[in-house]
Simulated assay, not measured.
Amino acid sequence: MSGVTGPDPAAEPLLAVQDLRVEFRTRDGVATVLNGVSYEVAAGETLAVLGESGSGKSVTAQTVMGILDTPPGVVTGGSVRFRGEELLTASPRRRREVRGAGMAMIFQDALSALNPVFTVGFQIEEQLRVRRGMSRRDARARAVELLDQVRIPNPRGRVRQYPHEFSGGMRQRAMIAMSLALDPELLIADEPTTALDVTVQAQIMDLLAEIQRERGMGLVLITHDLGVVAQVADRIAVMYAGRVVEQADARSLYRTPAHPYTGALLDSLPRLDQKGTALNTIKGLPPSLLAIPDGCPFHPRCPRAQDRCRAEVPARHEPAPGRASACHFAEEVLAGG
């Protein structure tokens, strides 16, 4: 788990997302992409957000950052507070002030996120000149320093190169350098190890953990890789069909999940003691967000589903101290029954 000292439970969270709701209004109909998402992140804490593709992980991050494409995305309810300040009703100017200096985001596809016609150095320097009023010389010196901090070899030479001249791992490091330029208090990393080999993945995650320890940042790690999460997360929020269906500290969740979906995800992990056996899978597919089924969205794939699950949406509750689950039978699931 993360080496950061645990947050003070009495302290105000750095980020608080409450009952966030987002629709995508398309030609085919209205897709309910976020359906009451809630989670909090404290200073110095790592929250991992897990779930299959389409569960709403990245849309939540984009809404928090104020970069959701509108249209088709429309925020229909909820709250996003950063250090107690409501952002959903803040002016566009205020949202821009918070982005970068308050919170920053690492995107999952560094090649697409970086502008191919400008050097990596220019893209780091630009925000320093515009937001901090630095001279070109000072901004260049800071860019070199940031590239060195993220362990890019020969930063003085690399700062003059273009994104296509960087490897995938180096582009991701450059993205991290850009996100750190304005010293944010919260970093959102959206699938930061996508398309990287296992060795580079480990290096990137070690780098993020080290930077977080040094700066005391809050970190939201969006991923579908349960192996990565086990090494770095303090707490985990599991998403399914636009809802957070379980939340717990990492150790407790891995030891005893309180939602069948979480249990199914953990069961699907390959294990060394099961060499030669077929991997467990979650039967079926995630529901279409244009037609989410009645009751619990997971019930068509859930081996525990009963009539109540097909008719009644489970409320999120605490089956045990420090645990939250949106399952009618969370207590039984937690007890292993």
Rank of each mutant, 00 (worst) to 15 (best):
D294S: 15
L285Y: 11
L290A: 07
K283C: 06
P297L: 04
P303T: 12
R310F: 13
P303Q: 11
R304P: 00
L289M: 10
I292M: 01
S288D: 14
C309L: 03
C309S: 02
C309N: 02
R310W: 15
C296Q: 04
I282S: 00
T281S: 15
A291F: 13
R301V: 12
F298Q: 02
C296T: 08
G295Q: 12
A291T: 15
P286E: 07
R310M: 13
C302E: 02
P297M: 06
L289K: 03
T281E: 09
D294H: 15
D307M: 11
C302F: 01
H299W: 15
S288V: 09
P286H: 09
I292Y: 02
P300W: 14
L290I: 15
D294T: 14
H299Y: 10
P293W: 13
D294F: 09
P293I: 14
P297H: 05
I282W: 01
S288P: 02
P300C: 05
R301S: 06
P293N: 10
C309V: 08
P286Q: 09
H299A: 04
L290R: 11
P300H: 12
S288L: 03
C302T: 04
S288F: 04
G284K: 08
K283G: 13
P300N: 12
C302A: 00
S288M: 04
P286A: 04
R304V: 07
H299E: 03
H299R: 01
K283V: 09
T281N: 04
F298I: 06
R310Q: 14
D294K: 14
Q306W: 07
C296R: 02
C309P: 01
A305N: 04
A291W: 10
F298S: 01
F298M: 03
C309F: 04
K283R: 14
G295K: 07
R301E: 11
L289H: 04
G295T: 14
L290T: 15
H299M: 01
G284F: 04
T281C: 02
R310L: 15
Q306G: 11
D294M: 12
C302M: 02
A291P: 09
T281A: 11
G284Y: 08
F298W: 11
R310G: 05
I292R: 02
P300F: 11
P287Q: 07
S288G: 03
D294G: 14
R301A: 06
P297R: 06
